[in-house]
Nucleic acid binder design. Structure first.
Length: 566
RNA sequence: GCCCCCGUAGCUCAGUGGCCAGAGCAGCGGCCUUCUAAGCCGACGGUCGCAGGUUCGAAUCCUGCCGGGGGUGCCA
C-alpha cells in the first residue's frame, strides 16, 4: 500500500535528518499518514512536524540551541525525503503539515498494471496464511431465519471475504444449537402438528412454537413418512422428531442463505461436543485446575479469576444440564485446541454483549491468548412497514423471514443496506420504503457504473478497438486522475475494514468509486471515430477496463453481483 | 444501581485527534441529435444531544448530565 510506503519514506527522512544533524536526536515517533478530506491538501498528508515539535525543542534546549517551528521542521523533513516513483512532490502547509502529491504519470500507468494483474493487484497479505474461523448466523435451528439473521449473514460473510482477500485462510462456520430445552420444545411442537394433520385433537405445547411454518414442516414429514410415525412409541418421539425437524430446518437455512449467496464450510453441531467427549475433557481440565466448584446444587466456573470482578458462571445447572457457558467453553476449546485456529471471530448480536465480554478472557483457562478470540457485536435490525414496527421474533409466531425480505427487495439491495451501517448502529429497516426507493438505491448506481463500463468495452470491441497501455500518459485530465486515485484507495479501505472488522467501509467506498467513475464517464468521451484520437481512446479503454475490474472487485467483496448490462 | 452501544443536514447514515464537517435520499434550478438520463452540473441545507476538561489542534479522547436501545449468576 502506498500509505505504508510513504510512512517508511518519512521515517527514513526523519532518521536521515537526525543523522545529518538537521534535527536533534529524539525517540522515533509513530508515523501516521492520512488521506486529507479536502482538495489541495495532497493525496496523502502527515502532521509529523506538529507531533514532534515538542520533543525536538526540548532536545534543542538541552543542547543550548534555539527553538524550531513546525514549519522549519517540515522543511528539513521534505529536504531529506528519499525520492519515489509514485511521488511527484511534497509540500509544506501551515501550521506544519506535509502534503504529498502522487505523480500523474505514475498514476496513469496503474491503469495498465491493474488490468494486467487483475484482482491480484488489490490483494493484500495481512494474514500471511494464518488460519481464521469466522462463525456467524448460528441462529437456533427451530425455524426459518428472520431478517435480523440477514444482518449477521451479511456481516459475517463479508468479513470472511475481506479476510480471504487479505491473505488469511478462512473457514466459515455455522454453530448449530441442536441440544437443550428449545430443541425439545421444537420437537414436541412438530410432533403435535404432525398428529394434527391426521385429525388428532391435540394441542401444541403451551411454550411451543406457534408459527405456521411448523405446520409446513409437519407436512414435509407427512409427505415422506405418511402416517407411519403416528405409531411411534412415545419415548422415541422427542428424539425422532428432533432429528427430522432439524434436517428440514437445516435444509431450509441452507437454501435461504444461498439466496444471499452465503455458504458455510462447516455446520458444527453443539450436541457433537457432548457425543465426542469434548465436553467431558473440558470438564476434566477445568476441574483439575480448580476452576469448578459446587454451589446451590449447580457446578460453577470460576470466571472471576480470568475475567476479573467477582461474578462466576453456572457451568452445569442444578438440573444436571450444562448451561450455555459450558457449551461455549467446550465449543471454543474445540476451535482452538482441537482444530488449531490461529484466530476465531464470532459474529453476535448485541444482546449477547455480556457473554461477549466474558468469553474471551475465559480462554486463558485453556492457555489460549484472549486476543485470539474476537467477538464482533452488531446491533439489532428493527423492521418497519409504513413507519410501524413489525415484530420479527420467532416466539410470537408471526415473523418476517429473511426470505420474504429478500424476495421483496432483492439480495443485492438488502446486502448493501445491511452493510452500509456500522456494526454498532441499530438499523431501522422500513420495508415499504425499501421497496419504494429501490430504484434510487445506491446499489443500482454502483451496478450501473459497472454495466456502463461493460457496455463501452463491448462497443469498442465491435468497432475493432482494444485497450492499450501504449499511451497511458495521455490520461491527464482531472476526472481520469481522480478515478485512478480512487481506485488505488481500495487496498487501504480493505485494510481498514479488516483491522476494525467493519464491513461498512466497503459500501461507502463503492459508492464513492462509482461516483468518480460516472463523473469520468460524463466528462471524458471514451469512444471516438476520429483516427487522430485513437491513442487516447485506447488509453481510456484501458482505464475503463481497470475501473470495471475494480468495481466488480469491490462488489464481489460485498457479495453483490456486477451486471454486464442493466 | 452498575456496565455497553447510539444521539452529526428535513430523512437514512458515514466520518474514533489534524488544516473551511461529508454522502445518499427528499426539495429547488439547469442539461437527453454523442459510449445506458437507473445519469450529469449547480445552488440550498448542520449550535456534530448539553455542559465542562485534556491538547498546538476535539464530532472524534476524559468527566458529568439529558434522551433512545441493550445487558446484568442456572435462556442462548
Amino acid at each position: 500500500m502506498l500509505q505504508n510506503q510513504l510512512e517508511t519514506l518519512i521515517l527514513q527522512a526523519l532518521k536521515k535528518a537526525m543523522k545529518k544533524g538537521d534535527l536533534p536526536k529524539i525517540p522515533l515517533p509513530e508515523i501516521t499518514v492520512t488521506r486529507p478530506r479536502r482538495e489541495g491538501q495532497g493525496d496523502y498528508s502527515t502532521a509529523l512536524p506538529l507531533q514532534i515539535v515538542k520533543p525536538v525543542n526540548i532536545a534543542l534546549k538541552e543542547k543550548g540551541e534555539s527553538k524550531r517551528s513546525p514549519m522549519q521542521i517540515g522543511e528539513v523533513l521534505i529536504k531529506r525525503l528519499p525520492p519515489a516513483a509514485f511521488l511527484e512532490r511534497a509540500e509544506l502547509a501551515p501550521p506544519g503539515f506535509i502534503n504529498f502529491y502522487l505523480s500523474p504519470g505514475w498514476l496513469a500507468q496503474q491503469a495498465g498494471a491493474i488490468v494486467q494483474q487483475g484482482p491480484a493487484y488489490y490483494r493484500l497479505n495481512l494474514g500471511q496464511g494464518r488460519k481464521v474461523q469466522v462463525e456467524f448466523v448460528s441462529a437456533n435451528p427451530t425455524g426459518p431465519l428472520h431478517f435480523g439473521g440477514a444482518r449477521n449473514a451479511a456481516i459475517g460473510d463479508v468479513l470472511a471475504r475481506l479476510l480471504e482477500h487479505s491473505g488469511y485462510q478462512v473457514q466459515r462456520e455455522y454453530y448449530v444449537n441442536d441440544r437443550g430445552a428449545q430443541m425439545q420444545t421444537f420437537a414436541m411442537t412438530l410432533w403435535r402438528r404432525y398428529q394434527q394433520l391426521f385429525g388428532l385433537d391435540v394441542e401444541i405445547p403451551p411454550d411451543g412454537y406457534p408459527g405456521a411454518y411448523m405446520i409446513d414442516y409437519a407436512k414435509k414429514i407427512q409427505a415422506t413418512y405418511g402416517d407411519t410415525l403416528l405409531a411411534l412409541p412415545e419415548d422415541q418421539v422427542p428424539a425422532r422428531f428432533r432429528e427430522l425437524g432439524l434436517a428440514i430446518v437445516l435444509d431450509e437455512l441452507k437454501a435461504d442463505l444461498a439466496l444471499m449467496d452465503v455458504h458455510f464450510d462447516t455446520w458444527f453441531s453443539e450436541q457433537s461436543l457432548y457425543d465426542d467427549g469434548t465436553f467431558a475433557r473440558v470438564f476434566a481440565i477445568l476441574s483439575e485446575q480448580g476452576d469448578l466448584y459446587e454451589k446451590d446444587g449447580a457446578v460453577w466456573f470460576r470466571a472471576s479469576q480470568y475475567v476479573g470482578g467477582n461474578r462466576d458462571e453456572v457451568f452445569v445447572r442444578s438440573n444436571g444440564e450444562p448451561g450455555y457457558f459450558a457449551s461455549d467453553m467446550a465449543y471454543h476449546y474445540h476451535k482452538f485446541i482441537i482444530r488449531g485456529f490461529d484466530w476465531v471471530i464470532d459474529v453476535w448480536a448485541v444482546d449477547h454483549q455480556n457473554q461477549a465480554k466474558r468469553l474471551p478472557p475465559s480462554m486463558k483457562a485453556f492457555g489460549v491468548d484472549p486476543a485470539r478470540l474476537t467477538i464482533v457485536l452488531y446491533d439489532l435490525v428493527t423492521l418497519k412497514r409504513g413507519g410501524k414496527e413489525v415484530k420479527i421474533s420467532k416466539r410470537s409466531g408471526d415473523i418476517i423471514t429473511m426470505r420474504e425480505v429478500l424476495e421483496e427487495v432483492g439480495a443485492d439491495a438488502a446486502r448493501y443496506f445491511l452493510l452500509s451501517h456500522s456494526n454498532e448502529a441499530r438499523i431501522d429497516f422500513d420495508l415499504d420504503l425499501a421497496v419504494a426507493q429501490s430504484n434510487e438505491n445506491p446499489v443500482y448506481y454502483i451496478q450501473y457504473a459497472h454495466a456502463r463500463s461493460a457496455s463501452i468495452l463491448r462497443k469498442a470491441r465491435e468497432a475493432g478497438l482494444e485497450p492499450s497501455a501504449a499511451h497511458l500518459d495521455l490520461l491527464t485530465c482531472p476526472e481520469e486522475q481522480a478515478l485512478l486515485r480512487k481506485m488505488l484507495q481500495l487496498p487501504e479501505v480493505v485494510a481498514q475494514a479488516v483491522e476494525r472488522l467493519a464491513p461498512h467501509y466497503l459500501p461507502h467506498y463503492a459508492l464513492d468509486l462509482a461516483k468518480t467513475y460516472t463523473q469520468f464517464y460524463g466528462h471524458c468521451r471514451v469512444l471516438s471515430k476520429d483516427p487522430e484520437q485513437k491513442d487516447l481512446t485506447q488509453a481510456r479503454l484501458m482505464l475503463v477496463q481497470a475501473a470495471k475490474l475494480t468495481l466488480s472487485y469491490v462488489l464481489s467483496l460485498m457479495g453483490m453481483t456486477a451486471p454486464e448490462s442493466m
